[in-house]
Design a protein around this nucleic acid. Structure first.
Length: 277
DNA sequence: CGATCTACCTGATGGC
DNA sequence: TGCCATCAGGTAGATC
């Protein structure tokens, strides 16, 4: 479900609502959500710890504890982090409940159970979660120069959509935002990275940064199923700004061509065949 | 090594 | 109604 803009929205909500609170108790149901390490050590390391900060790396969230530990969260396709109070009805698929001091709860809800949480610390993060160390640049927090971006594009010929979604190259971009970025840049999803002109490289880089910022400004995208929710359970608004994603058969807002859907690496891709080249 | 497929899950939707 | 196929924001691991 969530890509960088959605995770960033939740991060900012967590900073206001959860940082400074202490975790009083931890409840875990099922075995899927806590699968690196044991439930017992997960609970033991979190209970009594105070949340002192939140970081986002690509689509990962890291909650810093006053014990030095890090609570790492990845929402994958259907995970939600929701603020609640104890008397609120418990949603189906609530797998982890952190009860906070002085008040409130943080709940992890995840119907498809692809998401996960685990506890690590700065000294062991690289071995506990090697994929975190291998993330590419973050277009929101650590934008690189367009020259370096161009070097990455030219380093290896790869189709542009695969390039944008490769977390080793750029952290945080997934199926929705890769389509929106490519449309904004006027480039096709299957264009090879090493065929771009200098002007196209600059346009693509600008589109990456702009689309991500705009999507954060609108608090992310919730699709028809409204699975993506922020910490307060509210939907995002960026879906109203989508130019191509989910708009098959509709007119391109830029050139009035017809948006098409293609299958790319087993997933839907939306693009305008007349203004993306 | 890289590229490509599959598995991991539940739930919503649409065709028959 | 119901049954079945397809699809959904992601990524790791197997298999070529």
């Amino acid at each position: 479900m969530p890509e960088l803009p959605e995770v960033e929205t939740i991060k900012r909500d967590l900073e206001r609502e959860v940082v400074g609170k202490r975790i009083k108790t931890v409840e875990v149901s099922g075995t899927r959500s806590i699968r690196r390490g044991t439930k017992k050590q997960f609970i033991g390391r979190l209970e009594g710890a105070k949340v002192t900060g939140v970081q986002r790396r690509g689509k990962y969230l890291l909650l810093k504890m006053d014990t030095g530990d890090l609570l790492v969260v990845h929402l994958r396709m259907s995970g939600q982090l929701l603020k609640a109070v104890a008397k609120d009805p418990v949603a189906k698929h609530t797998h982890v409940t952190l009860t906070l001091q002085p008040a409130g709860q943080l709940r992890f809800v995840d119907p498809r159970t692809f998401g996960e949480m685990f506890v690590s610390d700065p000294d062991h993060l690289a071995e506990d979660a090697p994929e975190l160390a291998e993330l590419g640049f973050d277009p929101l927090d650590e934008p690189i120069s367009w020259i370096d971006f161009g070097r990455k594009l030219l380093a290896k010929p790869v189709q542009l959509k695969a390039f944008l979604m490769d977390q080793h190259l750029i952290a945080g971009i997934g199926n929705i935002y890769s389509d929106e970025i490519l449309h904004a840049a006027g480039l096709r999803y299957d264009r090879m990275s090493d065929t771009l002109t200098t002007q196209e490289i600059r346009r693509l880089y600008r589109a990456v940064v702009e689309i991500v910022h705009e999507a954060v400004k609108h608090r992310g995208s919730s699709l028809a199923d409204e699975q993506y929710r922020d910490l307060f359970g509210r939907v995002g608004a960026y879906q109203n700004e989508h130019q191509v994603y989910g708009r098959e058969g509709l007119a391109c807002k830029r050139c009035r061509g017809t948006i098409e859907r293609a299958k790319y690496q087993g997933r839907s891709t939306f693009y305008c065949p007349s203004c993306q080249v």
